[in-house]
């Protein structure tokens, strides 16, 4: 089984994140980059499915697919040290500034070339937070969208998931090939072992350019994006409110505030 896990490098959510003044794209250089947290669940899910396939006597391989600048190689290396077999890095200056729609086009082109039985993604990235990539890729690739999973089961070419809903879950079933996205807490992502870290150094990472993947440069990057940022500003700090110490009347004071604001 050919499993492709999408991994995005994002700025650390604990750091101060900013857009660049020049072109309103994310300033990726000034903050530490790491694997999008939700993608770690996708990697773990891919590894577990591959392990189960091998245990059942089937061949299985996990490929990491990352689109991003040079620096994203760090995230690829971490994914490989967790246990993925190889990686494809879509790396081209022409991709900078791509929006969701153009990113899905670029990734679909690569997926078409490298082939897949199962594509696994995190449910969203912590930087853009659109939550659309699995849906867009399923549409572009013409395969079922088996998204927002908090539990995944594979049985031959059948796939069954629990799709997280507002007040519970839906049971969803389909057949491979398919695009899956996983939500937080689907599993417990493993830490890379020392052996894994050493082994990762020898694992193959294929770099692809726009030309390699057959991507039309006019459809990606800032020029190819279907959306644009008009302006951006730092949110002004909230007006300092009133903070009181509880002197035995804290609850009553909250009630007074709520009543004055007509909440109670």
């Amino acid at each position: 089984m050919n499993i492709v896990v999408l991994v995005k490098q994002v700025p650390d959510t604990w750091a101060e994140r900013k857009l660049k003044d020049a072109d309103a794209t994310l300033d990726r250089a000034s903050v530490d980059g790491l694997i999008n947290e939700l993608d770690e669940y996708a990697i773990e899910e891919g590894l577990q499915i591959a392990e189960a396939q091998r245990a059942a006597g089937n061949e299985a391989e996990v490929t990491i697919l990352t689109m991003g600048p040079e620096k994203a190689a760090e995230s690829i290396r971490k994914a490989l040290s967790m246990g993925a077999d190889k990686a494809v890095h879509l790396l081209d200056d022409g991709l900078a500034g791509s929006d969701g729609l153009s990113t899905s086009y670029a990734l679909a082109q690569v997926l078409g070339q490298i082939g897949f039985d199962l594509v696994i993604a995190g449910s969203e990235s912590t930087d853009a937070r659109m939550g659309v990539m699995a849906a867009m890729l399923a549409e572009r690739l013409g395969v079922p969208q088996v998204s927002l999973a908090n539990k995944v089961e594979i049985d031959g070419t059948a796939i069954r998931i629990r799709r997280a809903s507002e007040d519970g879950y839906f049971e969803v079933e389909s057949t491979l090939p398919a695009v899956v996205s996983v939500v937080e807490k689907t599993n417990e992502p493993r830490y890379p072992s020392f052996k894994g870290i050493m082994a990762a150094k020898k694992k193959p990472v294929q770099t692809m350019s726009l030309a390699d993947a057959g991507i039309d440069p006019a459809l990606v990057g800032l020029g190819g994006a279907a959306t644009e940022v008009v302006d951006h500003t730092q949110r002004p700090p909230r007006q300092a409110g009133t903070v009181v110490k509880d002197e035995g009347d804290g609850g009553a004071k909250v009630a007074e505030f709520l009543a004055a604001q007509k909440f109670i």
Binding site: D99, G100, L101, S104, R129, M130, G131, V132, M133, A134, A135, M136, A138, E139, R140, Q145, S147, L148, S165, A225, A226, T227
Partner: peptide
Amino acid sequence: QGKEVAGRLAVKIDSGVLT
């Protein structure tokens, strides 16, 4: 779910989507 519908629609009609 709404965002997923928006994403698929964006690809179908090649239009920009803002979430």
